[in-house]
């Protein structure tokens, strides 16, 4: 699988993501600029976190209109793999590639802390190195991570088993104190209907080596590398 990153002005997590990808894939990911119009044959497009275009108007709103996003939409339509983390998730919702939106955290506070994510299904290209119901630790660093969709869409996501990850306690319970940003139904990440696109707010790329304090996120990248 050939992986690449999209760089937008104002993002700041591209190097961490590149390290995580290189670590698992054994080769450096291709770096693409937001003004590029061609993905150059990538199998996996990764949109990293940060504050693209200064979060002007809404988080991800400007990036979603960048020239490269036309190619990313075509890639999604062809069944290509896409991973969007944090601002990358916001960009995917603003571009209409994933449903819903990310609102300001319910507490109004920027959250910079660890959280635990419960794996809702372990049969996807992203999660097949985890077990269903398992939790893993990830880092949250966002001001606008409060997942919102209307009740009809939330019911549809659940009925079609497209909720990828939920905020949970270490032991996998869904609880208000574990859902720090106030996300609807504790949703931390969702899939596209074909399970090829994953968007999530926390950063699995921040824990891929014991030197970083843990490798909880590494199975996600290892699974992608093996796909």
């Amino acid at each position: 699988m050939k992986a690449g990153l999209i760089i937008f002005p104002g993002i700041n997590r591209e190097r961490d993501m590149a390290i995580a990808l290189q670590n698992s894939f054994g080769t450096a990911p291709k770096m693409l600029w937001h003004k590029d119009t061609d993905l150059g044959g990538l199998d996996l497009v990764v949109i990293p976190g940060g504050f693209s275009f200064g979060d002007y108007l809404r988080c991800g709103a400007m990036a979603a209109q960048s020239p490269i996003m036309r190619a990313v939409k075509d890639h999604a339509d062809r069944g290509g793999y896409i991973l969007g983390v944090c601002n990358g998730f916001q960009i995917l919702t603003e571009a209409g590639i994933l449903p819903g939106a990310l609102l300001r955290n319910a507490s109004l506070r920027f959250l910079s802390m660890d959280c635990h994510l419960r794996v809702e299904r372990a049969d996807t290209v992203f999660t097949n190195r985890y077990q269903t119901g398992q939790t893993f630790r990830a880092v949250m660093a966002h001001g606008d991570g409060n997942y919102f969709a209307d009740a009809t869409m939330l019911d549809k996501l659940e009925a079609e088993n497209l909720v990828a990850l939920r905020y949970a306690t270490r032991t996998g319970e869904i609880a208000a104190e574990a859902n720090r940003n106030g996300s609807a139904r504790a949703i931390a990440g969702i899939y596209s209907p074909n399970l090829r696109v994953l968007g999530l707010m926390p950063h699995p790329e921040d824990l891929v080596d014991p030197l970083m304090g843990g490798a909880d996120g590494k199975p996600l990248f290892d699974a992608l590398a093996a796909a």
Binding site: A61, Q65, T93, E94, A101, F148, A149, D150
Partner: peptide, 8 residues
């Protein structure tokens, strides 16, 4: 198309 996100 841009100024509002009609989802929210």
């Amino acid at each position: 198309k841009l100024l509002a996100n009609t989802v929210i």
